[in-house]
Amino acid sequence: MTIKIKVENLNFYYGSFQALQNINIDIHENRITALIGPSGCGKSTFIKTIDRMYDLIEDTKADGTIAFEGINILDESTDVVELRKRIGMVFQKPNPFPKSISENVLYAVKRHGDQDKKDFPSIIENSLRKASLWDEVKHKLNQSAFSLSGGQQQRLCIARTLATKPDIILMDEPTSALDPIATSKIEELLQELKKEYTVIIVTHSMQQAARISDYTAFFLNGELIEFGETKEMFTAPRDKRTEDYITGRYG
């Protein structure tokens, strides 16, 4: 089993408030790792450290190591633009660009300028196929992305991330704004995606974490309480607090 990302002694601060405390996690390649925990425990903060999205928030600071392919992601010298090509992010609320469906898929590809123009049609088709959206949109690629339903928009956001050929996909509650059918579509999709990508997903649904993930990490108040294989964690949690949370005894 290869370890894709190794997080060691990660601390994170918003100003003087410490949102993550000494986090240690190994993220396994081609596996789905679910992050669970009550609201405000630091799940979103954690995934923001992995692709350095916290750079966009003023007055934040991280220390420790997040080792990825021989570099420490947290280093000042890390090229965040390159990093974010390799580590994609899908947000809680679908956020397509105000452009056509195909322009959404090609948005980053065109701006990176590292792929051949004549490959664009196949990039569009492949990305949309991988995001299980192709059949629904193939006849209207030039229509605005806003003409899609919420679930379709979310899959479009996944497709545009896939178009940049990432290794890792971070997802922050990608189904919380979707209905059960759209949710199950995305869950099926995740099982496909993990063959090629490493996935880290934040979720508020215990059932979802149990259904889709291989590993689960339980956060509480900025601390990692328990991390391990999902099967074990949901059948025999080691920590009392984990048990309370997954059995619904926390808010």
Binding site: L83, R84, F91, N95, P96, A108, H112, T161
Partner: peptide, 15 residues
């Protein structure tokens, strides 16, 4: 301009 859309662009590794 909604920050969610700007973040979406940065998250794709766009300068």
């Amino acid at each position: 301009v909604p920050s969610s859309i700007i973040d979406g662009s940065y998250a794709l590794g766009v300068t």
